[in-house]
C-alpha cells in the first residue's frame, strides 16, 4: 500500500515580475516522507514553499494538497507551516503558550476555546519540542533555537499530515539541531507525517531526508541524498 500524496507541484511556474523564479517545477511528497529543498540564497526555496501552501498563486501549472487544487483546499488543519525567520519577532509581549495556541485559531473559529483534546495536544507538542518548562515565558526571553521550536510547535498543534518548514536550522546551534532532528524523525517515522524543509546548507540535517531536491536556475533537480556533496567538495 502506497502512502497518500500530501503535496504535489505539477509543472508549476512563477515569477514576481517578468523574470521567472520557477518554471516547470514538479514535486510529489507522500505521507511519511521527508524531503529537503536546498539551493543558494535567492534560488527560490521560499517562493516554492509559498506556492505549495497557496500563499502565492502560480502563473502556470497546478499545486495540489492531498489531491485538492490549493485554491479550493479548505482542510488547513492537515497542514502546518513554519515561516522563514531568525526569531519569533513580536512587537508586544506574547507567551510561548499563546504562540502555540494561535496555531488552533483556524480550527476553533469564533468564540470557541480549546477543548480538552486540544489542550492535551498543546501540552504534547510543548513536550515534544522541549518547551514545557518555558510555556508561560514571553517568547522574547527565549533563545533563538527555542523561539524556532515554539514556531514549530505552533505548526504541529493541529496534528498536521503535512509539515512545511522554511529554513528551520538557521541560527540554531548543534544541540538545538539535534532536538529538531529527533522531533522530525519522530513525526516522519512514527506519525507518518509528510515533511518538507528548506535549507541553504545541504549539510544542516545531513542524512535525515529521504530525498533532496535542489532549486537551481528556476528548476527543481533531484539530488541523491547519499551523493550529496561533502563539505568543501560541492558543485
Amino acid at each position: 500500500m502506497t502512502a497518500a500524496v500530501a503535496l504535489e507541484l505539477d509543472a508549476v511556474g512563477f515569477g514576481y515580475g517578468r523574470d521567472a523564479v520557477l518554471h516547470d517545477a514538479d514535486l510529489r511528497v507522500r505521507e511519511g516522507e521527508l524531503v529537503a529543498v536546498v539551493g543558494a540564497n535567492g534560488a527560490g526555496k521560499t517562493t516554492m514553499l509559498k506556492l505549495a501552501l497557496g500563499l502565492l498563486a502560480p502563473t502556470s501549472g497546478v499545486v495540489r494538497l492531498f489531491g485538492t487544487p490549493v485554491a479550493s483546499f479548505r482542510d488547513w488543519q492537515r497542514v502546518g507551516y513554519v515561516p522563514q525567520r531568525a526569531a519569533a519577532a513580536s512587537v508586544l509581549p506574547v507567551s510561548v503558550d499563546e504562540v502555540v495556541r494561535s496555531g488552533l485559531a483556524g480550527a476553533l473559529g469564533l468564540w470557541r476555546r480549546p477543548d480538552a483534546a486540544q489542550r492535551a495536544r498543546i501540552a504534547h507538542v510543548l513536550d515534544l519540542l522541549g518547551l514545557a518548562a518555558v510555556r508561560a515565558a514571553p517568547v522574547a526571553t527565549l533563545s533563538g533555537g527555542q523561539q524556532q521550536r515554539a514556531l514549530i510547535a505552533r505548526a504541529l498543534v493541529t496534528a498536521p499530515r503535512l509539515l512545511v518548514l522554511d529554513e528551520p536550522t538557521t541560527g540554531v546551534d548543534a544541540a538545538a539541531r539535534a532536538t529538531l532532528r529527533a522531533s522530525l524523525e519522530h513525526l516522519v517515522h512514527d506519525e507518518h507525517v509528510a515533511v518538507v524543509y528548506s535549507s541553504h546548507d545541504p549539510h544542516a540535517l545531513r542524512g535525515l531526508a529521504d530525498r533532496v531536491v535542489e532549486v537551481r536556475d528556476g528548476g527543481l533537480h533531484d539530488v541523491a541524498p547519499a551523493a550529496a556533496p561533502a563539505p568543501g567538495g560541492g558543485r
Binding site: 501552501l53 494561535s102 480550527a107 470557541r112
Partner: peptide
C-alpha cells in the same frame, strides 16, 4: 474583539501562518 480574539491574535502575530492555519 471577544468573538474574534483567537483569530485576531493569530493574524496579528503572523499573517502567513494564520492563513495556512485556516484563518
Amino acid at each position: 474583539v471577544v468573538a474574534l480574539y483567537g483569530p485576531l491574535v493569530a493574524l496579528a502575530f503572523d499573517e502567513s501562518a494564520a492563513r495556512v492555519a485556516g484563518v
